[in-house]
Protein backbone atom coordinates (compact mmCIF):
# COMPACT_ATOMS: atom_id res chain seq x y z
CA UNK A 1 0.00 0.00 0.00
CA UNK A 2 1.28 3.37 -0.88
CA UNK A 3 1.01 6.10 1.71
CA UNK A 4 0.51 9.60 0.50
CA UNK A 5 1.85 12.18 2.83
CA UNK A 6 1.47 15.90 2.52
CA UNK A 7 5.21 16.29 2.81
CA UNK A 8 6.83 17.72 -0.25
CA UNK A 9 9.49 16.01 -2.24
CA UNK A 10 13.05 16.09 -0.87
CA UNK A 11 14.88 19.29 -1.55
CA UNK A 12 11.72 21.37 -1.53
CA UNK A 13 10.71 23.70 1.27
CA UNK A 14 10.28 22.05 4.65
CA UNK A 15 6.88 21.44 6.10
CA UNK A 16 6.80 23.26 9.46
CA UNK A 17 6.57 20.72 12.26
CA UNK A 18 3.76 22.22 14.27
CA UNK A 19 0.53 20.77 15.43
CA UNK A 20 -1.57 23.43 13.83
CA UNK A 21 -2.35 22.75 10.20
CA UNK A 22 -0.82 25.15 7.70
CA UNK A 23 -3.14 28.03 6.68
CA UNK A 24 -3.76 28.47 2.94
CA UNK A 25 -1.78 31.67 3.01
CA UNK A 26 1.21 30.12 4.71
CA UNK A 27 1.07 27.30 2.23
CA UNK A 28 0.98 29.76 -0.68
CA UNK A 29 3.94 31.73 0.67
CA UNK A 30 5.94 28.54 1.25
CA UNK A 31 5.26 27.29 -2.25
CA UNK A 32 5.78 30.67 -3.92
CA UNK A 33 9.19 31.00 -2.31
CA UNK A 34 10.22 27.85 -4.10
CA UNK A 35 9.56 29.57 -7.45
CA UNK A 36 12.90 31.32 -7.78
CA UNK A 37 12.22 33.25 -11.03
CA UNK A 38 8.91 34.44 -9.63
CA UNK A 39 10.59 35.70 -6.47
CA UNK A 40 13.13 37.61 -8.53
CA UNK A 41 10.32 39.00 -10.70
CA UNK A 42 8.42 40.00 -7.58
CA UNK A 43 11.44 41.93 -6.33
CA UNK A 44 11.73 43.62 -9.75
CA UNK A 45 8.09 44.70 -9.68
CA UNK A 46 8.47 46.02 -6.14
CA UNK A 47 11.53 48.00 -7.20
CA UNK A 48 9.77 49.39 -10.27
CA UNK A 49 6.77 50.35 -8.16
CA UNK A 50 9.01 51.99 -5.58
CA UNK A 51 10.90 53.91 -8.26
CA UNK A 52 7.60 55.18 -9.63
CA UNK A 53 6.24 55.99 -6.20
CA UNK A 54 9.37 57.83 -5.12
CA UNK A 55 9.83 59.58 -8.48
CA UNK A 56 9.83 63.09 -6.93
CA UNK A 57 12.69 62.05 -4.64
CA UNK A 58 14.69 60.08 -7.19
CA UNK A 59 14.34 62.44 -10.13
CA UNK A 60 17.32 64.68 -10.83
CA UNK A 61 15.41 67.18 -12.99
CA UNK A 62 11.89 68.44 -13.43
CA UNK A 63 10.48 65.95 -15.94
CA UNK A 64 8.73 68.64 -18.00
CA UNK A 65 11.41 71.33 -18.12
CA UNK A 66 12.64 71.79 -21.68
CA UNK A 67 16.04 73.10 -22.66
CA UNK A 68 15.70 73.13 -26.42
CA UNK A 69 19.38 73.83 -26.91
CA UNK A 70 20.32 70.65 -25.03
CA UNK A 71 18.21 68.27 -27.05
CA UNK A 72 19.08 64.71 -28.01
CA UNK A 73 22.07 64.39 -25.70
CA UNK A 74 23.60 60.98 -25.15
CA UNK A 75 23.71 59.72 -21.56
CA UNK A 76 26.19 61.78 -19.53
CA UNK A 77 26.97 62.88 -15.99
CA UNK A 78 24.36 65.61 -15.97
CA UNK A 79 21.64 63.61 -17.71
CA UNK A 80 22.12 59.96 -16.77
CA UNK A 81 19.90 58.67 -19.56
CA UNK A 82 20.46 61.65 -21.89
CA UNK A 83 17.82 64.12 -23.07
CA UNK A 84 14.89 63.79 -25.44
CA UNK A 85 13.93 65.76 -28.54
CA UNK A 86 12.73 68.70 -26.43
CA UNK A 87 15.79 68.70 -24.19
CA UNK A 88 14.09 67.07 -21.21
CA UNK A 89 15.90 64.73 -18.80
CA UNK A 90 15.09 61.16 -19.84
CA UNK A 91 15.94 59.59 -16.47
CA UNK A 92 13.48 61.83 -14.62
CA UNK A 93 10.84 61.37 -17.29
CA UNK A 94 11.25 57.62 -17.14
CA UNK A 95 10.46 57.63 -13.41
CA UNK A 96 7.37 59.77 -13.84
CA UNK A 97 6.31 57.82 -16.91
CA UNK A 98 6.57 54.65 -14.81
CA UNK A 99 3.96 56.10 -12.47
CA UNK A 100 1.60 56.59 -15.35
CA UNK A 101 2.27 53.21 -16.91
CA UNK A 102 1.73 51.36 -13.63
CA UNK A 103 -1.27 53.42 -12.62
CA UNK A 104 -2.74 52.82 -16.05
CA UNK A 105 -2.25 49.08 -15.65
CA UNK A 106 -3.92 49.09 -12.23
CA UNK A 107 -6.86 51.12 -13.55
CA UNK A 108 -7.37 48.90 -16.56
CA UNK A 109 -7.17 45.70 -14.57
CA UNK A 110 -9.52 47.08 -11.94
CA UNK A 111 -12.06 48.01 -14.60
CA UNK A 112 -11.73 44.55 -16.14
CA UNK A 113 -12.33 42.93 -12.75
CA UNK A 114 -15.18 45.25 -11.82
CA UNK A 115 -16.97 44.41 -15.06
CA UNK A 116 -15.99 40.79 -15.55
CA UNK A 117 -16.06 39.19 -12.12
CA UNK A 118 -19.58 40.09 -10.90
CA UNK A 119 -21.07 39.22 -14.28
CA UNK A 120 -19.07 35.97 -14.37
CA UNK A 121 -20.37 35.03 -10.94
CA UNK A 122 -23.91 35.85 -11.96
CA UNK A 123 -23.68 33.90 -15.20
CA UNK A 124 -22.04 30.87 -13.61
CA UNK A 125 -24.27 30.71 -10.60
CA UNK A 126 -27.63 31.63 -12.07
CA UNK A 127 -27.14 29.83 -15.42
CA UNK A 128 -30.19 30.00 -17.68
CA UNK A 129 -30.82 32.97 -19.93
CA UNK A 130 -28.56 35.24 -17.86
CA UNK A 131 -25.65 32.97 -18.72
CA UNK A 132 -26.66 32.67 -22.36
CA UNK A 133 -26.95 36.43 -22.88
CA UNK A 134 -23.80 37.40 -20.96
CA UNK A 135 -21.70 34.66 -22.54
CA UNK A 136 -22.71 35.66 -26.05
CA UNK A 137 -21.84 39.29 -25.29
CA UNK A 138 -18.47 38.19 -23.96
CA UNK A 139 -17.90 36.05 -27.05
CA UNK A 140 -18.77 38.99 -29.27
CA UNK A 141 -16.36 41.32 -27.47
CA UNK A 142 -13.58 38.73 -27.54
CA UNK A 143 -14.04 38.14 -31.25
CA UNK A 144 -12.95 41.72 -31.98
CA UNK A 145 -9.15 42.16 -32.08
CA UNK A 146 -8.24 43.66 -28.72
CA UNK A 147 -6.15 46.58 -29.94
CA UNK A 148 -8.72 47.53 -32.59
CA UNK A 149 -11.49 47.48 -30.01
CA UNK A 150 -9.42 49.61 -27.67
CA UNK A 151 -8.62 52.10 -30.46
CA UNK A 152 -12.30 52.29 -31.39
CA UNK A 153 -13.27 53.04 -27.80
CA UNK A 154 -10.57 55.69 -27.48
CA UNK A 155 -11.79 57.13 -30.77
CA UNK A 156 -15.32 57.48 -29.41
CA UNK A 157 -14.18 58.92 -26.08
CA UNK A 158 -11.61 61.67 -25.57
CA UNK A 159 -8.07 60.51 -26.43
CA UNK A 160 -6.53 60.49 -22.98
CA UNK A 161 -5.23 58.01 -20.50
CA UNK A 162 -8.53 57.35 -18.74
CA UNK A 163 -10.26 56.54 -22.02
CA UNK A 164 -7.41 54.26 -22.95
CA UNK A 165 -7.70 52.46 -19.65
CA UNK A 166 -11.46 52.14 -19.93
CA UNK A 167 -10.84 50.66 -23.35
CA UNK A 168 -8.35 48.14 -22.04
CA UNK A 169 -10.67 47.37 -19.11
CA UNK A 170 -13.43 46.57 -21.58
CA UNK A 171 -11.04 44.33 -23.51
CA UNK A 172 -10.18 42.53 -20.29
CA UNK A 173 -13.70 42.16 -18.97
CA UNK A 174 -14.61 39.06 -21.05
CA UNK A 175 -11.44 37.30 -19.94
CA UNK A 176 -12.28 37.85 -16.28
CA UNK A 177 -15.87 37.00 -17.03
CA UNK A 178 -15.04 33.66 -18.60
CA UNK A 179 -12.60 32.68 -15.91
CA UNK A 180 -14.98 33.54 -13.09
CA UNK A 181 -17.87 31.85 -14.80
CA UNK A 182 -15.89 28.64 -15.33
CA UNK A 183 -14.77 28.49 -11.70
CA UNK A 184 -18.29 29.29 -10.53
CA UNK A 185 -19.75 26.52 -12.67
CA UNK A 186 -17.34 24.05 -11.12
CA UNK A 187 -17.98 25.21 -7.57
CA UNK A 188 -21.76 25.49 -7.72
CA UNK A 189 -22.15 21.70 -8.10
CA UNK A 190 -20.17 21.00 -4.92
CA UNK A 191 -22.05 19.55 -1.98
CA UNK A 192 -21.20 22.42 0.34
CA UNK A 193 -23.08 24.79 -1.92
CA UNK A 194 -26.05 22.46 -1.85
CA UNK A 195 -25.77 22.40 1.93
CA UNK A 196 -25.68 26.18 2.14
CA UNK A 197 -28.70 26.37 -0.10
CA UNK A 198 -30.60 23.79 1.92
CA UNK A 199 -30.22 25.79 5.14
CA UNK A 200 -31.80 28.77 3.42
CA UNK A 201 -28.78 30.77 2.23
CA UNK A 202 -29.64 33.47 -0.29
CA UNK A 203 -27.97 33.43 -3.70
CA UNK A 204 -26.10 36.56 -2.78
CA UNK A 205 -24.78 35.14 0.48
CA UNK A 206 -23.76 31.91 -1.21
CA UNK A 207 -21.99 33.71 -4.05
CA UNK A 208 -20.00 36.05 -1.83
CA UNK A 209 -19.47 33.61 1.04
CA UNK A 210 -18.78 30.36 -0.76
CA UNK A 211 -18.44 30.68 -4.52
CA UNK A 212 -16.18 33.72 -4.80
CA UNK A 213 -13.49 32.57 -2.32
CA UNK A 214 -13.23 29.30 -4.20
CA UNK A 215 -12.96 30.99 -7.58
CA UNK A 216 -10.25 33.36 -6.41
CA UNK A 217 -7.09 31.39 -7.21
CA UNK A 218 -7.28 31.48 -10.99
CA UNK A 219 -8.29 35.13 -10.77
CA UNK A 220 -5.12 36.07 -8.93
CA UNK A 221 -3.07 34.47 -11.70
CA UNK A 222 -5.11 36.29 -14.31
CA UNK A 223 -4.67 39.62 -12.52
CA UNK A 224 -0.90 39.30 -12.61
CA UNK A 225 -0.90 38.46 -16.30
CA UNK A 226 -3.42 41.22 -17.00
CA UNK A 227 -1.21 43.80 -15.30
CA UNK A 228 1.65 42.92 -17.62
CA UNK A 229 -0.47 43.06 -20.73
CA UNK A 230 -2.13 46.29 -19.61
CA UNK A 231 1.28 47.96 -19.52
CA UNK A 232 1.88 46.67 -23.01
CA UNK A 233 -1.55 47.76 -24.23
CA UNK A 234 -1.15 51.19 -22.72
CA UNK A 235 2.25 51.42 -24.39
CA UNK A 236 0.71 50.49 -27.76
CA UNK A 237 -2.09 53.03 -27.47
CA UNK A 238 0.23 55.79 -26.24
CA UNK A 239 2.77 54.82 -28.90
CA UNK A 240 0.07 55.66 -31.42
CA UNK A 241 -0.51 58.98 -29.67
CA UNK A 242 -4.01 58.12 -28.46
CA UNK A 243 -3.23 57.56 -24.82
CA UNK A 244 -1.49 59.88 -22.42
CA UNK A 245 -1.39 63.50 -23.61
CA UNK A 246 1.60 65.87 -23.38
CA UNK A 247 3.45 66.98 -21.37
CA UNK A 248 2.79 63.78 -19.40
CA UNK A 249 4.23 60.64 -20.81
CA UNK A 250 4.15 56.93 -20.28
CA UNK A 251 6.81 54.47 -21.36
CA UNK A 252 4.79 53.83 -24.50
CA UNK A 253 4.60 57.48 -25.49
CA UNK A 254 8.29 57.98 -24.73
CA UNK A 255 8.99 55.14 -27.10
CA UNK A 256 6.52 56.42 -29.69
CA UNK A 257 8.00 59.89 -29.96
CA UNK A 258 11.55 58.57 -30.06
CA UNK A 259 11.43 56.17 -32.97
CA UNK A 260 12.11 59.14 -35.26
CA UNK A 261 15.49 59.62 -33.63
CA UNK A 262 16.55 56.00 -33.54
CA UNK A 263 19.57 56.56 -35.76
CA UNK A 264 20.81 59.62 -33.89
CA UNK A 265 19.83 58.72 -30.33
CA UNK A 266 19.08 55.02 -29.95
CA UNK A 267 19.03 55.35 -26.17
CA UNK A 268 15.73 57.22 -26.43
CA UNK A 269 14.13 54.08 -27.79
CA UNK A 270 16.09 51.50 -25.85
CA UNK A 271 15.54 52.90 -22.35
CA UNK A 272 11.72 53.02 -22.26
CA UNK A 273 11.69 49.84 -24.34
CA UNK A 274 13.73 48.05 -21.70
CA UNK A 275 11.53 49.43 -18.92
CA UNK A 276 8.49 47.98 -20.65
CA UNK A 277 10.22 44.69 -21.39
CA UNK A 278 11.46 44.14 -17.85
CA UNK A 279 8.22 45.10 -16.14
CA UNK A 280 5.95 43.12 -18.44
CA UNK A 281 8.22 40.10 -18.21
CA UNK A 282 8.26 40.37 -14.43
CA UNK A 283 4.46 40.41 -14.20
CA UNK A 284 4.26 37.38 -16.45
CA UNK A 285 6.82 35.42 -14.47
CA UNK A 286 4.99 36.28 -11.25
CA UNK A 287 1.79 35.06 -12.84
CA UNK A 288 3.41 31.73 -13.65
CA UNK A 289 4.79 31.44 -10.15
CA UNK A 290 1.45 32.25 -8.56
CA UNK A 291 -0.29 29.72 -10.74
CA UNK A 292 2.11 26.99 -9.67
CA UNK A 293 1.79 27.94 -6.01
CA UNK A 294 -1.98 28.13 -5.78
CA UNK A 295 -4.61 25.48 -6.01
CA UNK A 296 -4.06 21.79 -5.61
CA UNK A 297 -0.58 20.71 -4.83
CA UNK A 298 0.90 18.11 -7.06
CA UNK A 299 1.68 15.49 -4.48
CA UNK A 300 4.09 12.77 -5.14
CA UNK A 301 3.77 9.32 -3.62
CA UNK A 302 6.53 8.36 -1.17
CA UNK A 303 8.91 5.71 -2.31
Amino acid sequence: MTTIRPTAAPGAGEQPLTDRPESPRQRFVRRFRRERPAVVAFVVVVLVALAALLAPLLATHDPDTQVLADRLQAPNGEHWFGTDDLGRDVYSRLLYAGRISLLAAVQATAIGIALGVPLGLAAGYLRGWVDVVLSRIADAVMSIPALLLALAIVGILEPDLTSAMIAIGVVYAPQFFRLTRASTLAVREETFIEAARSVGGTSRAIITGHVLPNALSPLVVQISLAMGFAILFEASISFLGLGVQPPDSSWGSMLGRSTRFFEQSPHLVLIPGLAILVTVLAFNVIGDGVRDSLGREIRRPTQ
Binding site: T65, Q66, L68, D85, P159, G241, Q245, P246, R257, R260
Partner: peptide
Protein backbone atom coordinates in the same frame (compact mmCIF):
# COMPACT_ATOMS: atom_id res chain seq x y z
CA UNK B 1 -1.40 63.26 -34.16
CA UNK B 2 2.05 63.36 -35.84
CA UNK B 3 5.12 63.73 -33.57
CA UNK B 4 6.68 66.49 -35.69
CA UNK B 5 3.65 68.67 -34.96
CA UNK B 6 2.92 67.54 -31.40
CA UNK B 7 6.54 68.17 -30.38
CA UNK B 8 6.28 71.79 -31.54
CA UNK B 9 3.07 72.36 -29.64
CA UNK B 10 4.67 70.73 -26.59
CA UNK B 11 7.50 73.23 -26.83
CA UNK B 12 4.93 76.04 -27.01
CA UNK B 13 3.10 74.46 -24.08
CA UNK B 14 6.26 74.60 -21.96
CA UNK B 15 6.99 78.18 -23.06
CA UNK B 16 3.47 79.29 -22.18
CA UNK B 17 3.77 77.58 -18.80
CA UNK B 18 6.71 79.94 -18.16
CA UNK B 19 4.38 82.93 -18.34
CA UNK B 20 1.62 81.29 -16.34
CA UNK B 21 -0.58 79.94 -19.12
CA UNK B 22 -1.62 76.35 -18.54
CA UNK B 23 -2.12 74.83 -21.99
CA UNK B 24 -3.82 71.46 -22.37
CA UNK B 25 -2.73 69.71 -25.54
CA UNK B 26 -4.85 67.09 -27.30
CA UNK B 27 -3.46 65.30 -30.34
CA UNK B 28 -6.10 64.01 -32.73
Amino acid sequence: NVPFYTAQLEAIQAQLAEVGVDLTVTSL
